[in-house]
Design a protein around this nucleic acid. Structure first.
Lengths: 118, 118
DNA sequence: CATCGTTATGTTTCCACGGACATAACCAGT
DNA sequence: ACTGGTTATGTCCGTGGAAACATAACGATG
């Protein structure tokens, strides 16, 4: 979970998938909470929305990123697949790359902007 | 103008501005064509839309990125200010950073996706 | 002073997207 | 059996943003 609310990159792929902070944080939440609904709650997101995003992601990859099961003592749960962890890690790496190596440019871009009533 | 349609990053700033390939290409088009409408045409974008984007960008920065004039023999025209050129250059640099330094991650992310009927 | 391509702006329509709400299915424990 | 928390899915509606269309202002040039 990136704490800096200023920097946020969204990647557009030719498959039609757009992947940004929202989906990345959701994946990370699922990994940490073991549940789609818990991850959604943590982000102030409805379960409907969280599940939709998971479905979208799973559909855009050759294999699911999230593996889920229902029923049981705890009602069910979800976890990241190897591919899911890989995708999340790659996105985080790109984020970090941008934050670190691109600090100069980002700093200049931010400084040039107006920040009214914010 | 980045030719690779696969990579495209969009930055979200706390000022509320979102800046991605569209605005960057538009700026570059204005720089090269000397006109908002010509830049818009080149991108298959209506003048209305192009101008709206310019207005949005100008409004989000402390100083305009695009300097325009109307009337005259050629009807008018537009050009990038120093700040405009600086912003464009910074965005391009970040794009390049991602493309070069992040090639591994991007490659992996792309390869893992499904590309149906595309 | 008419022309012409451009900047500048208003208005309306359309539609995808998200949010809200509802419901069913599932199943290890007890 | 019943419970409870979760996954899974359907439907409706409001809203923001983009597209489409329309029009005015501008001014060097001829």
């Amino acid at each position: 979970m990136t704490d800096d609310p200023r920097l946020s990159l969204r990647l557009h792929f030719e498959s039609g998938l757009t992947f940004g902070r929202g989906k990345a944080d959701l994946l990370q939440g699922i990994a940490e909470e073991g549940s789609i609904s818990a991850a959604g709650r943590r982000m102030g997101m409805s379960y409907r929305r969280a599940w939709s995003l998971v479905e979208e992601m799973n559909g855009h990859f050759a294999a699911p990123l999230v593996d889920s099961s229902r029923g049981g003592a705890k009602g069910g749960g979800a976890a990241l697949t190897d591919l899911g962890r890989s995708v999340l890690a790659d996105y985080r790496a790109l984020e970090e790359l941008l934050r670190d190596q691109g600090a100069g440019q980002l700093q200049r871009l931010r400084a040039a902007q107006r920040y009214v009533q914010g």
